[in-house]
Amino acid sequence: MMRVAVVDDEPLARRGVITRLQAHADTMLCGEYADGTAALNGLRDKVVDVVFLDVQMPDMNGLDVLAMLAPERRPKAILLTAHDCFAVRAFELDAVDYLLKPVDDVRFDEALQRTRTALRMPSASAEDVDGIVAIRRLSTKIGRRTCFIDTDDVEWIAADGDYALLHVGARSYPVRESLNRLSHLLDPQRFVRVHRSAIVRVDCIREMQPLTNRDAILLLREGTPVRVSRTYIDDLLARLHHNRG
């Protein structure tokens, strides 16, 4: 359950966020504040996982509220703003996303899902696999659109700087997640890390060619080669053996 606080000096804006939260059964409203000073005092006293936080408020702006909280008490933040010029400082203060006003419903849901991922919390797009919560869908931005990719369609994933590339057939989709985090969120029965820069879906592996240094090359269904590091070879062999059994 995500404990949520909402901070905005505009009553209608606060009500809009709270109304949208009611559609998410895994959220619980823990605080509602109309100014930065009240928010700072409230967030210092309460345990909050995520705060929807207006950036521009008369007495104290939202980024200053975050900066004045001790790092260990600072919740994940989804910023509410009419401008995107605060992004750099926002992410320095552990903001996971920002929503431009007026808030779009799809972007609202995407921001909540990104927060769940950051907190490693289950959601409506996750399922329990042997006691482990595994995500079933990932979201990606394509221009102004948000697209949702079913993990059932993902064949392999490659690291690409601060992003990961989901390979689906001949197309690839960037998601703002590290490969390390994805390796913990995906179904371990279906996906396996094979390299510091690659994850593959086990049932997409067509062939494995060993190399002399105990590395290997995987060939996927369409002939795509993916290198396996010797660091991960034992986990891969165990997963292949388990699936065959």
Score class of each variant (00 low, 15 high):
Asp9Arg: 13
Val226Thr: 04
Arg171Thr: 04
Ile199His: 15
Arg176Asp: 02
Leu112Met: 01
Asp109Ser: 11
Asp203Gly: 11
Ala238Tyr: 03
Leu119Lys: 03
Thr37Tyr: 10
Thr115Cys: 11
Thr151Ala: 08
Ser139Glu: 06
Arg144Pro: 08
Glu127Asn: 10
Ser172Val: 05
Asp104Leu: 00
Arg227Glu: 06
Arg221Lys: 00
Leu12Asp: 14
Gln189Gly: 07
Ala77Arg: 03
Leu69Gln: 06
Glu72His: 07
Ser172Thr: 08
Ala164Arg: 04
Glu155Lys: 14
His167Trp: 08
Asp26Leu: 11
Gln56His: 09
Gly31Tyr: 04
Arg227Leu: 06
His167Ala: 06
Met57Ile: 00
Leu29Trp: 11
Arg230Leu: 05
Gly143Asp: 05
Leu218Tyr: 14
Val228Leu: 04
Glu177Phe: 15
Glu155Thr: 15
Glu110Thr: 12
Arg44Lys: 13
Tyr232Ile: 02
Leu80Asp: 01
Asp54Cys: 12
Ala34Gly: 02
Lys76Arg: 09
Thr27Cys: 14
Arg114Ile: 03
Val194Gln: 10
Leu100Val: 15
Lys101Asn: 04
Asp35His: 14
Ala23Met: 13
Pro11Asn: 00
Lys101Asp: 00
Asp45Val: 02
Leu53Phe: 11
Arg227Gly: 06
Arg201Gln: 15
Leu63Ile: 03
Phe91Glu: 02
Ala25Met: 10
Ala90Leu: 09
Met57Lys: 09
Leu165Gly: 06
Arg15Ile: 02
Asp49Ala: 06
Glu127Gly: 11
Ser123Phe: 01
Ala87Cys: 01
Arg214Glu: 08
Ile233Arg: 15
Asp94Lys: 14
Leu53Ala: 12
Phe86Cys: 12
His24Thr: 12
Leu165Ser: 10
Ala124Ser: 12
Val51Pro: 02
Leu99Asn: 05
Leu179Gln: 00
His83Cys: 12
Pro102Asp: 03
Arg136Thr: 13
Asn61Tyr: 01
Asp150Asn: 07
Asp59Asn: 14
Tyr98Ser: 13
Leu138Asn: 14
Ser178His: 04
Tyr98Asp: 10
Ser123Ala: 08
Arg144Gly: 14
Leu211Glu: 07
